[in-house]
Amino acid sequence: MISKELTQRYYKGELSFINDVPEHVDLELITKKEQNLMEKNPFGDGISNENGENDFAVLDDVNTLKNLMAFAEITRYKETLLVDMTEKDRNEVTQRIINNLDMFHVKPVGYEIKKDSIVVAWYLNSVINTFTFSDQSTALID
């Protein structure tokens, strides 16, 4: 499957894809990665903490999540909302932002320019373990 098609499965807007987006997602490789994660990470049955409980058991039984994506919305530049800028200023700022998206350590796959915002899309991982995702995503919360 082409990664652009996969991304658009989850985002129905008009993304402009960044040139270095991989053209294909290797479904066979994803299946092998998923199988490896399932073998390495136990399902919830029989797993418990020192109190004999496993609150995460249901998600352990899900075990893997596929096609982890993230979307963000940029609505302002410095102290000014994009929607409050003149069209000329908004176009200049928007182009400046788009030209610098590759500065993210994790490269976005695309973006959409709207009147009041810029939506940025990342394809983060083809397959991830549920616990790893749950544990690492807490770093995103301030």
Rank of each mutant, 00 (worst) to 15 (best):
Y123N: 01
Q95K: 14
S48D: 12
V93A: 09
D20L: 10
D60H: 07
L81H: 08
N67H: 06
I113S: 07
H24I: 14
L101R: 00
D135T: 09
E92P: 01
N125Q: 09
I97V: 14
S3P: 02
K115R: 05
Y11G: 15
L29P: 06
L15Q: 11
D61F: 02
T138M: 08
D45T: 13
S117T: 08
L29V: 05
L15A: 11
E50C: 05
G13S: 01
I98P: 12
I141N: 04
V109D: 09
K32A: 01
S16I: 13
M38Q: 06
N67K: 00
Q8M: 07
L59K: 01
N51K: 14
L37M: 03
I113Q: 11
T138K: 09
Y111K: 10
N49R: 07
P22G: 04
I141K: 04
I98W: 00
T94A: 12
N99P: 11
L27E: 04
A121V: 12
I18T: 09
I98N: 05
L6Y: 03
K33L: 03
N129M: 01
K78M: 11
A70Q: 14
I141W: 00
G44K: 02
P42M: 01
I128R: 12
K66D: 14
I47Y: 04
S126Q: 05
D26A: 13
A57W: 06
T130Q: 02
D102H: 14
E53K: 09
G52C: 07
Q136L: 10
E92F: 08
I2T: 13
E28C: 02
E73Q: 13
L81G: 08
A72V: 12
D135V: 12
A57Q: 12
K107D: 01
V21A: 03
M38N: 02
E50T: 13
M69V: 04
D84N: 07
Y10I: 03
E112D: 11
E53F: 09
G46K: 00
E112P: 15
F133M: 01
A57L: 05
D60K: 09
N67A: 15
E14D: 13
Q136D: 12
D45E: 10
K114V: 08
L6M: 04
N36K: 06
N99G: 03
D142M: 09
N36M: 00
M69G: 11
V119M: 11
L124S: 08
P42I: 01
L124I: 07
L101H: 06
A57H: 06
E5T: 14
N63D: 03
Q136H: 08
N51S: 08
P42Q: 00
F17T: 14
E112L: 03
R76E: 15
M103H: 10
V21L: 15
D135R: 12
L82Y: 14
L101F: 03
G52Y: 10
D55M: 05
S117H: 13
E28F: 06
F104R: 05
I47M: 01
G110Y: 00
T132Y: 00
Q136W: 11
D61L: 02
N41R: 14
S48L: 12
N19H: 14
G46D: 01
S137F: 02
K107C: 04
K114E: 12
D20W: 06
T7N: 08
A121M: 14
Q95G: 09
Q8L: 14
L29F: 09
E39R: 08
L68K: 08
G44H: 05
